[in-house]
Design a protein around this nucleic acid. Sequence first.
DNA 1: CTCAGGTTTTACAACGTTATACACGCCGTG
DNA 2: CACGGCGTGTATAACGTTGTAAAACCTGAG
Lengths: 338, 338
Amino acid sequence: MRVSLKDVAAHAGVSIKTVSNVVNNYQHVTPAMRERVQRSIDALGYQPNLAARHLRKGRTGIIALALPELGNPYFAELTASVIDAASQHDYIVLLDHTGGSRDQELLVSQGFRARVIDGLILSPIELEAEDLRDRDQDVPLVLLGERDYDLPYDHIAIDNVAAARDAVRHLIELGRREVAFIGARRDRSEPAQLRVRGWREELTAAGLPADEGLVAAVDGWGHADGARAMRHILDSGRRPDAVFAYNDPMAIGAMRVLHERGLRVPEDIAVVGFDDVIEGRFGAVTLTSISPDKAAIGRLAVESVLARLGNDAPEPRRIWADYQLVQRESTLGRPGAP
Amino acid sequence: MRVSLKDVAAHAGVSIKTVSNVVNNYQHVTPAMRERVQRSIDALGYQPNLAARHLRKGRTGIIALALPELGNPYFAELTASVIDAASQHDYIVLLDHTGGSRDQELLVSQGFRARVIDGLILSPIELEAEDLRDRDQDVPLVLLGERDYDLPYDHIAIDNVAAARDAVRHLIELGRREVAFIGARRDRSEPAQLRVRGWREELTAAGLPADEGLVAAVDGWGHADGARAMRHILDSGRRPDAVFAYNDPMAIGAMRVLHERGLRVPEDIAVVGFDDVIEGRFGAVTLTSISPDKAAIGRLAVESVLARLGNDAPEPRRIWADYQLVQRESTLGRPGAP
DNA sequence: CTCAGGTTTTACAACGTTATACACGCCGTG
DNA sequence: CACGGCGTGTATAACGTTGTAAAACCTGAG
């Protein structure tokens, strides 16, 4: 049988509320009383019943993290950092995966879990601004990632345009002139993606053409999509001397195709990815990549959500997390090798 | 404001309990009444409060999934399948990561979340049988993975010994004679790991020596550990003609080292991994691996936990999931290549 | 028309917690 | 020596749901 406040109260010979006060570190309790009650708590091994507490307080102690896919190690690492940050505030993380589909993202953002969670951290891919505009404001929402919404929600991300420009600049500084972009979205006329924009801006700034024929659109975000996009570019007769991919799995998929076609990385084609997943450090050719500060992103996301739980919710704001360009063999070449 | 049963009842002009009966599909409700109440429910947008329901019923509708690490894509894929299976039973998945440390695993298994979750799916690495023996039986527990416990809990896994033997047999059939094993545990005198046992058994069965000098112990389970282990073996002056790794990330880490040392895979050294993660299909050399049926494992785990929630808990049993050996370039070589 | 037997609906009491409002001392002040 | 004020503890009412038991309502037989 579970032991409740009532049992502890009976054991200590005090009222239920006094025990509750001790448990909650209420101020006005004499040290003597506090110790007496604590002794009973320890003796009976009391643990608070969270359901009852939640019922009373209207909070569940759970925040949801909704991600497009867990298969991408970037999200796995991010998840770990969110869990860590949440547990420091005695919060628990519920995981949803949306598959990056607009319907699922919509469902999640509308709060089909509304009765379970106190807050939501969402990393949208397909979701449109209008989908969020008429959202039921019940549950605080924090957005993560590349999409750029002009909406009254906290948004935590690195500066994707600047990061993409850094990546492309790195390629240009290495003497590359034809930089392909892998991972645009097929279904957007004017791609909302900031990474494409960064690619375009930096090329233009360098006086190079931002050749849309070198932009490959894809359906998904995985290795296979990167491979498909790379094949598509090569099969179209183009032979860029560099590739900037939307993320690391796509970059790795592209490198696989280059390898199959007998093209050397980086001698023939240099490759830069995005997210700096562990996998990129152990291929036959290690991958140059933009490395976001995942720990910071997770921490900031949790803090933002929790800050909105109180009555005095702060102004929605855009929070920039740190990032850096990590240079490896896919652009620099193998140090010791010929 | 949230709308409760009381509000719906007032709106429909019936008692609270009648609304509750409709919500719960209780039998004895006339169709007319059911429709009237349903109309009010829809009109007000009622959603049940789970905390209250939990308080009353003693169930939370949440199961926890505790994994050693999310970074390993195998666990990410497994998580996705568990979430899918759980949602089909209207259950929600809470994610914990233990880091594969015994302390964390112990904490989780002892149920520090006991007040929140109905059941627990645990994939232990370091945890010992004795740690589980004196467990508080409150929350149903299902074990996952390679560790072999003789305990009254459901255990879902593939036949690790058989799978490891299949992997090693494949190498032997290709003519390899010195098969190294990467990924034993440093801190176990008699390694409990079934995959090492399979390696040993198959070599012995083939009349080959199971040379313990070719078994590399490691501390972790990631790419870097595999790389370290491979370096260790090569630096010790050994030159095996095949490597069987505990999992895919370690196999990939090992392949990176072979590449650095100028050794060709599979011509000089063939490599087999375990888990068949997506990453293995896109390296410069694609990876032969044991591929467990992750979808089945997730589904079986969820069903096992939920089956134990009722009063008539079934006998604890060991459930074998399917697997197969997927042969790729790291053992077969590149088809078209010289 | 009454009453048994069954179905449908209702009132009320839990579940374990916290908030509210109040009672009880004890102090120092007028 | 009353009296307000403060610091401490207590009874009681919620929170939203479901199980229990009983009330109200039918139906058809005697």
